[in-house]
Structures are given as C-alpha cells and as structure tokens.
Write a protein that binds this DNA or RNA. Structure first.
Lengths: 209, 209
DNA sequence: CAAAGTTAATCAAACGATTGATTAAAGTAA
DNA sequence: TTACTTTAATCAATCGTTTGATTAACTTTG
C-alpha cells in the first residue's frame, strides 16, 4: 500500500543521511548507500533520479522542520532579551543535538563551498536563525539589558561553533567530555543538559554588566 | 638542483593542501591536483607514492610546526593561570588563523572518522594542546583564581569551536562579521584581533568570580 | 467470475566515464 | 655514459547511471 512506499523512501533517506555524514558526498558511493539500505542500486535513481537528487532529498526532508524553530521567539516584546536567549538555547539544544547526524552533514556541505543552489538554500535557512539571534541580542543591548560593547557576531559564532565542535569531531570531544557522545542515551541524559547549562552560564557571564 | 626538487614538492603540497581542503579527500582527484599544480599526474605517485601518501605528506609537513605551539606555557608556575590563558589565545590565534586552509582540512579529516593511522596521529597531536589547556584551567581552579564550578571541557570546546565555525564555514561567518574573511589582509587586520579580543573577554567573564 | 491489460516496484547485468596507479620511452643534468 | 625527471599512454577498478526483464497488485474487459 501507499504507506509502505513512503516508509521505504524514508528508510533510504535515513541511511543516506547517515552514510553521507560519515563518508562525505564523494566518499559515499551509491553502491554503499543502497547496500546499507538493503535495496537494489537502481532504486536510488528510480526514486530520486540521481545521486544529487538523493542528496538534495536528504536535505529537503529536514529543512521544513528547521526553518520554523524560532517562530515563537523574538516577536513577544513582553519578555526580556535574556529569557529569549534562554528559550533559544533550550529549543536549539533539543532540536539540533537530536539531529546530530544531519547537523554534521549540514555543516560539512556548508564548509565545502560548492556553487550549488543547495548551498544557497542551506545558507539562507541557517541565516534565518542567525539573524533572529542577532535581533534578540541587539534588542538586549538597546534596552540596556546587556552590555553595549558585546560582540554580537562572535557570540553567535560561539553558540553554533561550540555545538559543532562537539558533535562534528567526537574523536576530540569524547576524551574531553569523558563519555560516549555517539550513544543516544548519553546525548540525552548528559550532553544535552551540559551544553544547555554551560551555554547559559557562559553567556550570562559575558552579556551582563 | 636539489633546491628545485624541494621547491617543486613543496609547491605540490601547497596546491594539494588547498584542493583537499576545498573538495575533500575523495572529491579531490589526482588529475585535478596535478593539473592545478602544473605537473604531470604521474609526478604525484613518483614523489609521494600514492594519493594517500600525498595526503599524509600534506599533514606531516605541518604537524611539526603545530605540536610545539605550547612548549613554553604551563611549565612556568610563576605566572598566573589567566595570563597563561591569554598567552595561549594569542599564540593560538596567530598560528591557527594563519593556517586556516590547513585547519579546515584538519578538522574535516577529524570529523570523517576513518580508522586510519593518520586520524589517530592527528587526534594525538591536537589532544596535546587540549590537555595543556586542560592543565592550565585546572591549575587556575586549584589556586582559587578561577571559579571552581567552571566546565573545563566546554571551555575548550568553545575556544576551538568558535574559531572552527568562522574559518570552516565562511559562507555563514561572512554575513555575520560583515567583511571578507577569505582575504588574507582582512584576516590579519580584523579577524585575528577580533577573535583574540572576544575570546579573552568571553573567558574573563566566565572564569572569574 | 475469470482472462487480459495496466501499472509501479524491483532486480541483475551492463554501460560509458572517471578514478588512482603503472608503464616504457623520452628528456635532462652531472 | 649514468642517474634522475618528466611525459604520454595505458591499466584494472570503481564510479553513477541505464537497461530490459520480472514480479506483484490492481483494473478493465468479456
């Protein structure tokens, strides 16, 4: 029935997302992806047209769930900029750390600067969140809540950079943190709270007078 | 003469380092590298044995200059932990931002977790600097200079992560910072001072009571 | 009802192109 | 000469993709 078809395409996308994130676009052959997904090689082209189409589909599936991460923030003028920052850290911590496999792939593709339409789409998507953060921080400066000499751009770079460093280079992060960050259980019970807590404390110390 | 040979090998390594960092290991074909270097394809195998050999050589050339970045820090008990941190940020800012092309390649390879000997070598190399930082921070905690509840691992992740975010994803960092971070002149005059200054202010706010 | 037709899904096999690597011959300098 | 470089041609292997055949599930027709 129809549900089975959707599930199979989704299964292929799951596997492709993981393999792409592990091996990179060029390192992930269609044979390897189809093999790990347990489907015939031709099914990739049948479903997605090409390897590029598959790659694109991996992103398109996730883009929708990311672009509205901040829909309810920054619009409500009644709460303080800092509490918005806290909300952002919470949302972003939950959403982003949960999809660490996709995040790795995402920034891998952003780093490798192809002139693709995909690259521009991804940049615009991420830039939305970034500018939202920018707005919150500047609002906090304007109303005297934060120090007026804070480096907004660098704060944002720190927020995303710290997370990326941990998730994208577990080989470094693991001996640092002292537990297995590839284990989903550990991510949920230890990594997520640790990142959230640290980020709040770090920014609280930096942003306020 | 001998000098020409060395220069030619060095030239190939320069080009290979750049192409590898732009396209990734799998995306950078030997034909492309040799083409951009202006040498025959067979020269790569003649000089470096194989593509893997060339890749390894790119790293080995730089490893030596990185492993002793902190030789004069952490041993001198007379200066404060904070001034050691400041020295570290200075050294690391100069060294690391200058080799941003290599840094991109480095963390690209660290992220893609191959079981290579190379991966382990690179991890050990980077881990040396990390543990040195760890030592400084714990020393600061022990002597009451820093707060005792700081998250050492996360501080280190922040230090490296923020830099990596900016250098490895210029597509995101450029609209954030507002200037061209691929321009060496801009890196020297604006990015380097900005990173150093921000990192000192950020950590100063977080580490102290 | 059953036979014929239609559709999408799946497969093994093969395609041309490109990959990293090798060869043998030509070139260069001591 | 002798030893080291460089070149074009070529190798087997792998790449992404296409093909034609087969299966299975519905629809239509008689």
């Amino acid at each position: 029935m129809d549900k089975d078809k959707i599930d199979k395409k989704d299964h292929i996308l799951d596997v492709a997302e993981r393999v792409f994130s592990e091996k990179g676009f060029d390192g992930a052959s269609t044979r390897l992806i189809s093999g790990e997904a347990g489907v015939n090689m031709a099914m990739l082209n049948y479903y997605f047209g090409s390897k590029d189409g598959l790659f694109l589909a991996v992103f398109q599936r996730k883009i929708a769930s990311f672009q509205d991460i901040l829909q309810n923030l920054g619009n409500d003028g009644s709460i303080s900029a800092w509490s918005k920052m806290e909300q952002y850290i919470e949302l972003y911590g939950d959403k982003v750390v949960a999809n660490n496999c996709f995040q790795k792939l995402l920034y891998q593709e952003m780093g490798m600067n192809r002139g693709n339409d995909l690259s521009h789409k991804l940049r615009d998507m991420l830039l939305k969140n970034v500018t939202e953060l920018d707005k919150i921080l500047n609002e906090g400066i304007a109303n005297g809540e934060f120090k007026k000499d804070i480096d907004v751009a660098m704060v944002i770079a720190t927020l995303y950079g710290t997370k990326n460093y941990i998730l994208n280079t577990p080989m470094m992060a693991e001996p640092l943190l002292g537990y297995d960050i590839t284990d989903d259980k550990m991510i949920e019970t230890r990594l997520k709270p640790q990142i959230k807590s640290f980020m709040k404390n770090l920014l609280k110390a930096y942003l306020f007078n």
